[in-house]
Design a protein around this nucleic acid. Sequence first.
DNA 1: GAGAGCATGTAAGAGGTTACATGATTCC
DNA 2: GGAATCATGTAACCTCTTACATGCTCTC
Lengths: 183, 183
Amino acid sequence: MSLVHAILGFLNRQPLTGYELKTQCFDQSVSYFWPADQAQIYKTLEKMESEQWVESQIKFQNDRPNRRLYCITTGGQNELRRWLETRQPLHVQREPFLVQLYFSEDLKNNTIIELLEHQKILHGKQLHGYESIGMPAFNLHIVPRDVFLANRTLNLGKRMEKAYIEWIEETINMTHQLPDVEE
Amino acid sequence: MSLVHAILGFLNRQPLTGYELKTQCFDQSVSYFWPADQAQIYKTLEKMESEQWVESQIKFQNDRPNRRLYCITTGGQNELRRWLETRQPLHVQREPFLVQLYFSEDLKNNTIIELLEHQKILHGKQLHGYESIGMPAFNLHIVPRDVFLANRTLNLGKRMEKAYIEWIEETINMTHQLPDVEE
DNA sequence: GAGAGCATGTAAGAGGTTACATGATTCC
DNA sequence: GGAATCATGTAACCTCTTACATGCTCTC
């Protein structure tokens, strides 16, 4: 399960609380290929502690709620390493918009085009979001490994969005040429 | 929920049993953007019947198990139409391989490359599977709408796989040039 | 005074996966 | 004799989402 291993990956860099994992780790970096819900992070941390991959201690605070700080254990590091070296099978992807399009034969061309235009806007926003993440150009021979890898994951996100948008545009053009349904 | 609407889409063309939906509809056409599990199809059909979107009757057979044939109702047709005309939000996509890559900074270059090569094989097979689905060239002005739409969904699948594979190749090349971790 | 930030947690439910059970027939 | 096909269904389980609850502090 990737959530477990993403958490292990973050905790392998430094001890963190559930709150920090949510707001500073997941939401800021991996959310576009592995979004994580707050409730699930807390639940998963509990499960991971029972498996002894992490340990937690409470940091008391007077003016704010106490924090429960999680550290990775050696067991957790071994598990992370094992998983990182394991070949991943293809992940099942689902795309509701394609379900919609596939069954849209009775919709009018303009309705189909309007739905395609809407998807184009959404994917455009997504792409724009990726492009606004400042990733400076780097020299391959001196770039830190983690920066390189973060850059590569973001690059895939951008490519997929661009390919999707191109496909939408092509599909819109083709739909314009399609004989319409009768009223 | 797209499974419900995919089933409505199929039943809108003709009455079908759960078994036929699984083996002749989902597995043969939409599985690459909406795979459906047998157990879930049966569960969902039950739920859809309680919502009165479909009706079922049992067809008795002597030599084989009886069949429960489902028909779409007018309520089901209205729901399908409503959904088909509704703008879909972006669907959350998760990609375990990117989680893996993102945290692979301590792996040796060769290990990372080996994992990338494996993904390339998997995506190559996927692409090959799409390409082996015979979709003849068609004339936009006379093509049946359902054929056009099926063709377009498949086209997106191919594009995404091609873009993914290109990204893998580029990433492999770059990783070759990356200074390695120390042993 | 309202709302945002800090921080953890619970509860309920939706959706999907895996595995198993039945039992006749057909094919190798 | 063993496996595949036909056909439906149940049960347990996993993952993820949504909504809610607490209560203090700081800022506008």
